[in-house]
């Protein structure tokens, strides 16, 4: 029974982090009210887990509770709200995510022995093996003959990010047009509400981590609705990999907002059962999302573009 309880705790911690992200995006100041209903909708969850998340934030003195009034922000952006979010991240931390995040940050190489990981993280052999098994389930690591484990390609270089986009261009529109696509309308509505809330924030306030979360949620949702089980499985695994390893993308505020608008246009078409239009919009959205940036530029020289399509 310990495992489900731990998972629930992890979900509540993740939700609490999401609440802080929203507070930062909306530029909330110390003393402002956080209505439970508004945050449940913004995060796409019911009120019960939201209460649990608020409770965690209260325990960490980030929110305060007032009888018959609800929760209020105690720690504002000037008082270290960002640092508070980092503390929560540490609480949420599991060994599997630490290993993956160290690989994505190129702290550890792509082939690892269990004993090297035991030494680095100061954890038991069994704990390390369990973490590797969790990563193996998502196809992030594979066991080599012997005692080593190899990381599969992750989204950590311009080339791999470009390859990821090309892969998605092949599969995501197909996932929509394949027979049997069924939109789950309640989840679609919640996602739409989250995206609208992001769009209402002040210019420059949408953080890249928070955009990445909502982006992978949206694309993962489209995959989940697909009628083709293989497309669904491959895309879901890929979006999990994106979410875990492609964290530091920096996109101008205008493009972040345009991207969210494009997500909502795709949802509009899906709700009207215009699957071909939605697939075309998805192609357009992905093509526009390609990060087009020279690797090097200098006066007097044609900029250097790398990647498969450069």
């Amino acid at each position: 029974m310990a495992e489900p309880r731990r998972n629930a705790r992890q979900n509540h911690l993740a939700l609490a982090k999401q609440v802080i992200g929203i507070a930062l995006e909306r530029g909330l100041q110390s003393g402002e009210h956080l209505p439970e209903q508004v945050y449940s909708e913004a995060c796409g969850v019911s009120r019960t887990p939201m209460r649990a998340a608020f409770k965690i934030l209260e325990e960490n003195e980030i929110l305060s509770w007032r009888e018959e009034e609800g929760y209020f922000l105690e720690t504002g952006p000037q008082d270290g709200l960002t640092e508070a979010a980092q503390l929560l991240e540490e609480m949420e931390d599991s060994l599997a995510t630490r290993i993956l995040s160290d690989r994505a940050a190129r702290r550890i190489s792509d082939v690892q022995s269990v004993s090297a990981l035991v030494r680095r993280y100061g954890r038991s052999r069994n704990t390390v093996l369990n973490a590797l098994k969790i990563l193996a389930r998502d196809g992030i690591v594979t066991q080599l003959p012997g005692r080593s484990w190899a990381f599969q390609p992750i989204l950590d270089t311009p080339r791999s990010i470009e390859e990821s986009l090309q892969f998605r261009l092949i599969l995501e529109p197909q996932a929509i047009t394949a027979p049997g696509f069924a939109l789950e309308s309640k989840k679609a509505g919640l996602l739409r509400a989250q995206m609208q809330a992001h769009l209402q924030t002040r210019q420059g306030r949408i953080g890249s981590a928070s955009f990445m979360r909502i982006d992978t949620e949206f694309h993962g949702f489209i995959a989940e609705c697909s009628g083709n089980r293989f497309a669904r499985g491959a895309l879901l695994a890929h979006h999990r990999l994106r979410r875990a390893t492609q964290k530091d993308i920096s996109i101008p505020d205008f493009r972040l907002r345009q991207s969210l608008e494009e997500h909502m246009d795709i949802l509009d078409s899906l709700e009207k059962l215009q699957f071909d239009v939605a697939a075309d919009l998805m192609t357009l959205h992905l093509r526009r999302s390609r990060i087009r940036r020279p690797d090097a530029a200098n006066r007097g020289i044609v900029p250097l573009m790398r990647g498969p399509n450069a």
Binding site: E90, D102, R107, R205, S208, S250
Partner: peptide, 14 residues
């Protein structure tokens, strides 16, 4: 210029 917000990811050395 105005740019999108950068959040430093958590590093092992915090």
């Amino acid at each position: 210029r105005t740019e999108s917000r950068f959040d430093l990811p958590r590093l092992p050395v915090a």
